[in-house]
Nucleic acid binder design. Structure first.
Length: 293
DNA sequence: CGAATTTGACCGGCGC
DNA sequence: GCGCCGGTCAAATTCG
């Protein structure tokens, strides 16, 4: 029951958040300031920039400049319009449709390792499978092209980037409790598997995804050592859901307000995407309706 | 030489 | 029960 409520709540926030993020220029500017090339750094910035930044990093629409020398803050897309429906969420998977004229794929803020590629039946284009390079991170994403529109990339994110989670927890550690036990199927399993390992992780107490000090971010390892145990989507969501009190949408202003917790972030954290103005522009194709659980 | 990518095989789930 | 399809694994290959 709680989960249900949580789900709804989460869903709303999520959509709202996404919408704001995507359409909020402020957000863009903000994110711009966080032009860390590496994911870890992003995480770092997150801890420094506070909510807004969090959102940026989290939802992933973070811009990663300078990665390939394209530090075009100037060329920032004056506007990135994404229809709310361009981002779909189903079963803890987020599908993002993006119009890309270049290899936007490589612009992701996180480092991904391709672990597979499959040709899809009804599509002339193959689907690529990526995993976060961090061994403790179970974040995954699938990338494929729309058969009808080669320009359109369909990216499906699954799982949560521990990079972010860690941060998240670190900022709310106090309130965080094992309620997060509600692991879910797919993701949960995967993640568990991922974190399964290392006794080290255990050290940090599985119950207490308490992560390492946020300030310790930066290195791919530290942060995850502790968060690995959990700190995944499943954990975050319920967690926050359970404590919406934090600031259940205190519509103070923008993203900040709609960022009561990271439910949205939790799952979206892996949505890290760097819409490099030069390469891609978000497109929206109202596909299926967003559904959660 | 090490790391990353490619590619085909294998496995599990789902629909018929 | 069988076949199809998607997802993952792992060996081979390529690249830096």
């Amino acid at each position: 029951m709680e989960e249900l409520m949580a789900a709804n709540w989460f869903d709303k926030l999520d959509e709202e958040l996404i919408r704001e993020l995507l359409d909020n220029e402020t957000f863009l500017s903000e994110s711009t300031s966080i032009s860390e090339p590496e994911a870890d750094q992003q995480a770092n910035s997150v801890t420094k920039h506070h909510v807004n930044s969090n959102v940026c990093n989290d939802v992933g629409l973070l811009k990663t400049f300078g990665k390939d020398g394209t530090n075009d803050r100037d060329t920032l897309p004056t506007r990135i319009s994404i229809l709310e429906k361009g981002l779909n969420k189903m079963d803890h998977k987020y599908t993002l449709k993006i119009k890309s004229s270049g290899n936007a794929l490589s612009d992701d803020g996180y480092k991904w390792r391709k672990y597979g590629q499959k040709s899809i039946k009804h599509s002339p284009y193959p689907r690529s499978y990526f995993r976060c390079t961090n061994p403790r991170c179970a974040a995954k994403k699938q990338v494929e092209r729309c058969s009808s529109e080669p320009d359109t990339l369909i990216i499906t994110y699954e799982g949560l980037h521990l990079h972010y989670t860690s941060h998240f927890f670190s900022t709310q550690t106090d309130d965080f409790h094992p309620p997060a036990k509600k692991l879910k199927k797919t993701t949960a399993e995967t993640q568990n598997t991922g974190s399964e390992s290392k006794p080290q992780a255990h050290k940090c107490s599985p119950t207490d995804p308490t992560l390492p000090n946020p300030t310790t971010f930066g290195s791919d390892q530290n942060p995850f050592e502790g968060a690995s145990a959990r700190g995944l989507l499943e954990d975050v969501v319920p967690l926050n859901v359970l404590k919406p009190s934090v600031n259940t949408i205190s519509n103070s202003s923008s993203s900040t307000s709609s960022y009561p917790s990271s439910p949205p972030s939790s799952s979206s954290s892996c949505l890290t995407w760097s819409p490099n103005p030069k390469f891609c522009s978000f497109d929206v194709s109202p596909t299926s309706t967003t559904t959660l659980m």
